[in-house]
Simulated scan of single mutants.
Amino acid sequence: MTKILRPSQKCLRKSLFKYIDIGLSLLLLMPTTALADGNNNSNDPPPQTTGTSGGSRGCETQSETSSSRIPALILLAPSQIYGQTLATRPTFAWFISNSASWQMEFRLYEYDQASKQSKLVKEIKDENFKSSPGIIMLSLSSSELLVGRRYLWQVELVCDANRPSGNPFATAAMKVVTFKPDLEKQLSQSNDVLTKANLYNQADLWYNTLKIALISKDQPKLRELKISLLEQVANGSETGLKEQIQVELTKSAIHQLQR
Results as ranks from 00 to 15, higher is better:
1 M>A: 11
1 M>N: 09
2 T>M: 11
7 P>E: 04
8 S>W: 09
11 C>K: 08
13 R>L: 08
21 D>S: 14
26 L>S: 15
33 T>V: 15
33 T>R: 12
33 T>Q: 10
35 L>H: 01
35 L>N: 09
35 L>S: 07
36 A>G: 00
37 D>Y: 05
38 G>D: 08
42 S>E: 10
43 N>I: 05
47 P>E: 06
47 P>I: 09
48 Q>E: 14
50 T>F: 12
54 G>M: 11
55 G>V: 06
56 S>L: 11
57 R>C: 07
58 G>D: 00
61 T>A: 10
64 E>L: 06
67 S>K: 13
76 L>S: 02
85 T>L: 03
87 A>R: 13
89 R>A: 09
91 T>C: 03
93 A>M: 06
98 N>A: 13
99 S>K: 14
109 Y>S: 01
114 A>R: 13
118 S>P: 04
118 S>T: 01
121 V>P: 04
121 V>F: 00
125 K>A: 13
126 D>A: 07
130 K>Q: 11
134 G>F: 01
135 I>M: 07
142 S>K: 14
143 S>K: 12
144 E>M: 09
144 E>H: 08
147 V>A: 05
149 R>Q: 11
150 R>N: 14
153 W>M: 05
153 W>A: 01
157 L>G: 01
162 N>C: 03
163 R>Q: 10
164 P>Q: 05
166 G>Y: 03
168 P>H: 06
172 A>W: 01
173 A>K: 03
180 K>L: 09
180 K>N: 12
181 P>K: 10
181 P>Y: 06
183 L>T: 04
186 Q>F: 03
186 Q>C: 00
194 L>Q: 04
195 T>C: 01
197 A>H: 01
198 N>P: 00
199 L>V: 04
200 Y>A: 02
201 N>T: 02
203 A>E: 00
206 W>T: 02
207 Y>V: 05
209 T>K: 00
211 K>T: 14
211 K>N: 14
212 I>G: 02
213 A>G: 03
214 L>S: 04
218 D>N: 15
218 D>C: 05
220 P>Y: 00
221 K>D: 08
221 K>R: 08
222 L>A: 03
222 L>R: 01
223 R>N: 07
223 R>F: 02
225 L>I: 04
232 Q>R: 09
233 V>R: 00
235 N>H: 08
236 G>C: 12
237 S>V: 11
237 S>Q: 06
238 E>G: 15
240 G>P: 05
253 A>K: 13
254 I>L: 13
254 I>F: 10
255 H>E: 07
256 Q>P: 04
256 Q>T: 13
257 L>V: 09
258 Q>H: 08
258 Q>V: 14
258 Q>D: 12
259 R>V: 15
